[in-house]
Simulated scan of single mutants.
Amino acid sequence: MLNAQRALTRNVQGNAELPRVPELEPLYQHGARPRRGEVIMVAGRSGTQKSGFALFWTAMMGLPTLYMSADMSGFTASARLASIVTGHTTEQIERGMSDAAARQMYLDAIAPMKFQLCFDSPIRWTGLAQELDAYVELWDSYPAIVVLDNLMDIEGCESSYEAQMAAMAEVTDLARETGSTILILHHATDKGWEAKSSPWTPPSRDQVKGGLSEKPELSLSVALDPTSYAYNIAIIKQRMGRSDPSAQQFCTLRAYPEHTRFGPYKGTFNPPGVIDL
């Protein structure tokens, strides 16, 4: 048991803000304060670049990351990481991997990334435990960030609300035991009036399936306008800061899906050039 003074002294460093990504400055200005050791949810309807956003965000923070996905193939995830670093499209990367010189340049470009990838389908708790044990064995520490992509792809959570609730409890315990930030992706409903009448507005908290966005310390709701590539993000839950459960207040980024990159909505996109094919 800790008194208030000891609890604050012990936990203040572990709950520091995550490194800020300059391209996401509009999100921080909107009031988001993602912190270390928290559970963070990114929720959105199908096809809203949740995985791409999670990859970009975690890659750009530069922290040791374990990314577990049942929602992407190994090629898709690794090509997206290469795209983030080089600014090249997935198509360019796929074409370049057939050329020995370009292949080596791509491999060298992503070599410094502190990423471990796992593609179990479904995501199993035993598999996650083994991955964490292997990570500790290799690096003598837990990863700073663990991404679970996504909640409904965790074993037993495909259609069971009770299993999803239990999974969120497990995720919370995992964050507390390891000190890792757990970033979990989840779906919002594609049905209902809001999804049909305003598909490019972030879903409100009550549209997140199972009401599970109430559990994390920070829950973000995302939507993509495919006509302008405006990427709208609402803070629908934040334990220590601004939030709007209705998702009517949101910030806007610009998505570049072909590059797996995001940035301010107004401005010129200058992809980092690493390889000239």
Rank of each mutant, 00 (worst) to 15 (best):
R36T: 12
Q29R: 14
T48N: 15
Q29N: 12
R35S: 01
E38N: 14
N15G: 06
V42T: 10
T58K: 03
G52D: 13
M1N: 06
P22D: 06
L63T: 00
A4N: 06
M61L: 03
L63D: 05
E38L: 03
V12G: 00
E38K: 08
S51K: 03
N15K: 09
M60P: 00
G31N: 07
R10M: 08
Q29C: 02
S51R: 02
T48A: 05
L2A: 09
V42F: 01
G14I: 06
M41Y: 01
R6W: 01
A59P: 00
A7P: 08
M41S: 11
R20A: 15
N3K: 03
M61I: 01
R6N: 08
R10F: 08
V21K: 04
M1R: 09
F53H: 03
T9R: 10
T48S: 10
G62V: 01
P19E: 06
L63C: 07
L27Y: 13
F53P: 01
N11C: 00
G14M: 05
A32K: 13
G52I: 03
F53L: 11
G62T: 03
R6I: 13
I40M: 11
I40P: 04
R45I: 03
R45H: 08
A4D: 12
A54C: 07
Q49S: 10
F56T: 01
T58E: 04
R45C: 08
L24R: 00
G37C: 05
T65F: 08
P19C: 14
A7Y: 14
L18C: 07
S51P: 09
R6S: 12
G47D: 11
G14H: 09
A4T: 07
T65N: 04
L24W: 10
A43E: 01
P19M: 09
V39T: 15
M61W: 09
F53N: 04
R33H: 11
R6E: 13
M61Q: 13
N15P: 01
R36C: 10
Q5K: 13
L18V: 14
M60T: 15
R20L: 14
N11L: 05
F53I: 03
E38H: 11
P64R: 08
P64F: 12
N15E: 14
